[in-house]
Design a protein around this nucleic acid. Structure first.
Lengths: 198, 198
DNA sequence: CCTACCGATCGGTAGG
DNA sequence: CCTACCGATCGGTAGG
């Protein structure tokens, strides 16, 4: 008879992977990739470094897995918040409120994205591709929002998309540095209001 | 008689300090504070690590001196570009064009600012204070711009100031990651045009 | 401003 | 031939 507390088959390994990804997420979000050590992450999940490296072959691979996981998470939430009929700008605002309630998620992309500006950074290509995809994604939604009259039709959708992502990142930086002085959701709402008022 | 190639008095030390600050600027801009090593900086100016630490007592001190120097540089340029009569929005656009021609300067603040989101980072307080000062500074100029009719009077100057800084940082991030896809000055100009068109 | 080092920690790998 | 690790240690480098 198997011990009921011990997961059978590969379940144990899957749980370990999830625990490592969670810990790595937190440490990368706090200290960046270069400031984070595998030892710190391993310690948090009660493993040795070699134990951790059994599940992820290198620090680079661990980073990319964390990014992939969080990105999917964000996409899912935007899809949820949008539905078929809800205005896109409202969905974005919902996401901003969500981020305000969950700083850890915000910090991960804010810190790693800036670090990845360096062409030698292991996530450099990943972030470049991410922004290309995001600009395309938001551009499409802006075109639809224009067709529905949510925002003025005279504006270039791609210009707006680039701008929306910039305001998004820039506000998060100011908010992360000084949460008492900057209200993320309200500031983002002010920007979106400007888009529809034009 | 002194060797004509060797600066007399304290001149040599001043030159060394300047060379170190320049090298530190470049290395911090490329790799962040935590990713940069004193050894790399020392090597660039032909010094040993202890030699470097004769001029700056610690890595932390070196970082703060670099930041102070670059910040003053930026302020001076804004003042120059503004004069008494030139519109403030035009001065900002000039600065954006300047940054586009000089990525190193832009990278320094983009990478270090995000890294400094961590409360344990040696420049955390410095960056928080920097953004408080900048928000106040830009707010004042926006109020003046409203009085002159450059931008619509109905907008809250502080909200606009926060937004301008956000777009500024966010666009620089996208541009640094992918300079072929994002035109910094043009994208910023588009945003400013939206402000005056309202 | 040097050589010569320190306590510690880095990412990653060995055999078992 | 698989998984999930272990204690010990590799060669180098960190800030000081």
């Amino acid at each position: 008879m198997a011990d009921t507390d011990a997961p059978r088959g590969y379940a144990r390994g899957r749980e370990r992977r999830e625990a490592i990804l969670k810990a790595a997420n937190e440490v990368f979000a706090a200290r960046g990739f270069r400031g984070a050590s595998l030892a710190t992450i391993a310690e948090r999940v009660g493993l040795s470094e070699p134990g951790l490296l059994h599940h992820f072959r290198s620090k680079d691979e661990l980073l990319l897995e964390v990014l992939k996981l969080r990105e999917q998470h964000d996409y899912d939430r935007v899809e949820d918040a949008m539905g078929d009929t809800a205005p896109y700008l409202d969905a974005l605002l919902d996401l901003a409120r969500d981020n305000e309630a969950n700083p850890g998620l915000t910090r991960l992309f804010a810190i790693l994205g800036a670090e990845a500006v360096d062409a030698d950074h292991p996530a450099h290509e990943w972030f470049r591709e991410r922004y290309r995809t995001l600009r395309g994604f938001v551009t499409e939604h802006m075109e639809e929002a224009q067709e529905r009259g949510e925002i003025a039709a005279g504006l270039d959708a791609r210009v707006i998309a680039t701008q929306v992502l910039a305001v998004w990142d820039g506000l998060q930086l100011q908010w992360l540095l000084d949460p008492d002085e900057v209200d993320l959701a309200t500031a983002f709402e002010d920007y979106l209001a400007g888009l529809s008022a034009r």
